[in-house]
Design a binder for these strands. Structure first.
Lengths: 337, 337
DNA sequence: TTCCCCCGTCGAAGCGCTTCGACGTCACGC
DNA sequence: GCGTGACGTCGAAGCGCTTCGACGGGGGAA
């Protein structure tokens, strides 16, 4: 293994000079820098990560905790993970993958052993048991999602409340008067997953504000459940002309089910969704949707951590403004009349 | 930060004794071990990962390279990643997540900096450009999937050829005489993804052996493409009664498309698939399928690495025997006659 | 009884890097 | 002309851990 002393000897400088040439933490003359760079290239030198971590107390690794629970949409998680890795690499950091299964002990372990410099935690619950730990840890962390009390914690997420509102307002703007929200599976609400609840809040608030009749329906992630919800909606709200869907796997089956029940989208029924753009675009009837910007959230989360690692003050809350893309699933109600 | 010398002092032993008590690499009396354990508990000691890595030249971290390409089914990747993390933890290792985007340089980096002890590489191509590098690297690696020449490399995967055969044989056993394979998107074959090609081989070989008329159809991962393939199949092979699907996102749309074209599954058409069990089970018509055992592959991959890290000889090839689960999508051809 | 060897423990020497203080040199301002 | 800094570099001191050789004591073999 070629080490820093080998490079130093080869370049005719001291090891510390090589180190400074590499880190830029002290001025090094252009000529020396060149010579060092050349020696590094020639010898194929790679600094030893462990030695570096020990000496600098920086591992240049971030922990990413991914959820495994029922009811979360896997591709979104994956896309998010990838964007975190990509963003981290831009800052010369790597990403350690932890599963939620590891729990608080896992977080404590990677933090206390100095395996990682900072943590990103996904799928935050309203009253997440990990919050006290994250506050107490001596390393910065970013939560994806907002718990009930976010004080002292850095959080980021799509503004799901605004997303819910946006979906309703769009329908209201098209003249729809009776709307329903088809939401995530019941267990997601039961365990207090913040983003799901926020969508409900936004949906309800906006419906009330606009004077719409509205209802909320959690829905299992299966075609059969979608079918049941569709039937139930027609039964209970015969005047229904607008549906907001916040449940990726159910979006397509639900539209199918409405179709089989004689309701065409968008002729008889307008649908808006909160889901990744790729999903919304790929359906038979492309769906007007609020995007879940996983890539942006991931990148921003990394930026927030980097700021903290570089001693900048931690901004507490970052809510990303939802953006809606008009597609083929929405139409003015006048057409249905 | 509490360090090993603190523990040693508190327990009235030397640091090396603490180290040996922890690692078990030398005999330590039960009494001393107890005392050390108690001190560790009391002081909340956690060994510094970097220091450990430096001194022992073992980071206890594995690299996992995940694919990002088009045409791969994301949930399978995610499930695999999770199983790798879980298995790694059982061996006191963590997992560093790399994207394929990082390429060979990424592999070299984490290996040469001693950031990781070993690597797991997914989505191996038949002529993967990373193979020479992996052979040359001074740390062990396991490939998920088989390249054209696997010599000197440890590989593991489902036996996709056998899986393709199994699907055909099942259909043949039910009396079907004309079969088709609906495969992965064209780009997957173009770039020489081993498992996709192996399925085709198995499918064709088994069909020939059984004297079946057969055809192979790559298919984009969209409902529209599924529809087109369904129409094409009916046109070109009117006598078709058996279909093998190796393309997760297309499985459901394809069955739907056949339905709309007047072919009921399994009454008119028997379908077998190679896909995760969860997918096969969740469809309207649960599909007879060969499971993709991501969890098992992940766990086994980790075991293989651990063996190599512990100095045991590296087994070269591990092919997992495919297992088929009978579900509702297959029926004897006599029924259709 | 004597010799060996194994058990249990210690001390010291690193592992390869970063960082701190120090030092010489040079340019500048007064 | 000399103090003052900034610049560029060096040497040494660790960072916290593992591991190697050594050593005293006790038990079994001879």
């Amino acid at each position: 293994m070629v080490k820093i002393t080998d490079v130093a000897r080869h370049a005719g400088v001291s090891p510390s000079t090589v180190s400074y040439a590499l880190s830029g933490k002290r001025p090094i003359s252009e000529e020396t820098r060149q010579r060092v760079a050349e020696s590094i290239r020639r010898l194929g030198y790679r600094p030893h990560a462990g030695a570096r971590a020990l000496a600098s107390s920086r591992s240049n690794v971030l922990a990413l905790v991914v959820p495994l629970r029922a009811g979360i949409h896997v591709p979104v998680v994956m896309q998010f993970a990838v964007s975190v890795v990509t963003a981290a690499r831009l800052h010369d950091h790597d990403v350690l993958l932890l599963t939620q299964e590891e729990g608080e002990e896992g977080l404590r372990r990677v933090a206390d052993t100095a395996l990682v410099d900072a943590l990103i935690v996904m799928d935050v619950q309203l009253h997440d048991p990990r919050l006290p730990l994250l506050r107490a840890l001596d390393r910065p962390s970013v939560l994806i999602g907002f718990p009930a009390a976010a004080d002292g914690l850095t959080c980021i997420d799509l503004d799901f409340k605004a997303a819910g509102e946006l979906c309703v307002e769009r329908l209201a703007g098209l003249g729809h008067r009776v709307v329903a929200l088809v939401g995530s599976p019941p267990e997601v609400y039961v365990r207090g997953t913040a983003f799901a609840q926020r969508v409900v809040q936004g949906f309800t608030a906006a419906a009330d504000r606009s004077g719409l009749a509205s209802s909320v329906h959690p829905c299992e992630a299966s075609p059969a459940a979608a079918r049941r919800v569709a039937e139930q909606l027609l039964r209970e709200q015969p005047a229904l002309t607008g549906v907001v869907v916040h449940n990726e796997p159910v979006l397509e089956p639900l539209i199918d089910a409405f179709g089989q029940l004689g309701l065409r989208v968008p002729a008889d029924l307008s649908v808006t969704a909160i889901c990744p753009d790729e999903l919304a675009e790929s359906l038979r009837v492309p769906v007007t949707s609020v995007a879940i910007p996983s890539a942006e959230v991931g990148a921003r989360a990394v930026e927030l951590l980097m700021n903290q690692l570089n001693g900048k003050p931690a901004s507490e809350a970052t809510l990303l403004t939802p953006r809606m893309t008009e597609r083929a699933s929405t139409a003015p109600r006048t057409l249905n009349a």
